[in-house]
């Protein structure tokens, strides 16, 4: 990002992004098999906390939502609810081939295949399952995107809410959740 001395807003934004990328609070919520790679990433061997990646218990305190694997339609409903409760700015990381193209559940009757049809994804990490190294490299990629001001999935979600909603309602038949609007 260019720092323009005259444009204080840019500087403020720059400082904000600096702060944001060094304190990524991750919601402790796991779907699919991938959540099993989170404990080794967080604990002493790989120690993700040295990058400012910390776990958080509730969506309203978290910045990053990890989708750690396949999402069944039933879970998707809860994930959308969780995502909408998180405060801006918020980022989504998709873990593993299941979130990218369905992975080994590509012909399952009950799991969605492409996550970015239903919610904005900032970074995908491939692998089945990605190892802690690639998880950390995914986080660093996210930090670079935040630094460049390009991790703006949450803005896209607000702008294209109708498109996302239509996709979500296509698979979630009984939509009995509050309709947020920004």
């Amino acid at each position: 990002m260019e720092i323009n001395d005259k444009d204080t807003l840019t500087i403020v934004e720059h400082i904000k992004n600096f702060a944001r990328r060094h304190s990524l609070f991750v919601l402790a919520y796991g779907t699919g098999c991938g959540a099993i790679e989170i404990p080794p990433t967080m604990t002493s061997r790989y120690d993700a906390e040295r990058f400012g990646i910390v776990g958080r218990a509730t969506p309203r305190q978290a910045d990053v939502l990890l989708i750690t694997g396949y999402l069944s339609v039933k879970t998707l409903k809860r994930v959308i609810r969780t995502y909408e409760q998180m405060q801006d700015p918020k980022y989504v990381i998709g873990f593993g081939s299941c979130t990218i193209n369905g992975g080994m559940y590509w012909d399952s009757y009950n799991t969605i295949k492409v996550l970015d049809q239903y919610m904005p994804v900032d970074v995908y990490i491939n692998g089945c399952m990605p190892r802690p190294e690639s998880v950390i490299s995914g986080f660093i990629k996210l930090q670079q995107l935040i630094k460049a001001g390009k991790a703006d999935g949450w803005k896209k979600y607000q702008e294209n809410l109708d498109w996302y909603r239509a996709n979500q309602k296509k698979v979630i038949k009984n939509w009995n959740m509050p309709d947020y609007n920004w």
């Binding site: 369905g102 590509w106 012909d107 009757y109 969605i112 295949k113």
Partner: peptide, 25 residues
């Protein structure tokens, strides 16, 4: 909220269903 044929029946075509219901990359 399942409204299709019970999915574990052998005459339920899960591949066709998932093709129709979910987006393919």
């Amino acid at each position: 909220d399942w409204d299709n044929k019970p999915p574990m029946r052998r005459d339920f075509d899960t591949r066709a269903y998932s093709k129709e219901a979910f987006y393919d990359r």
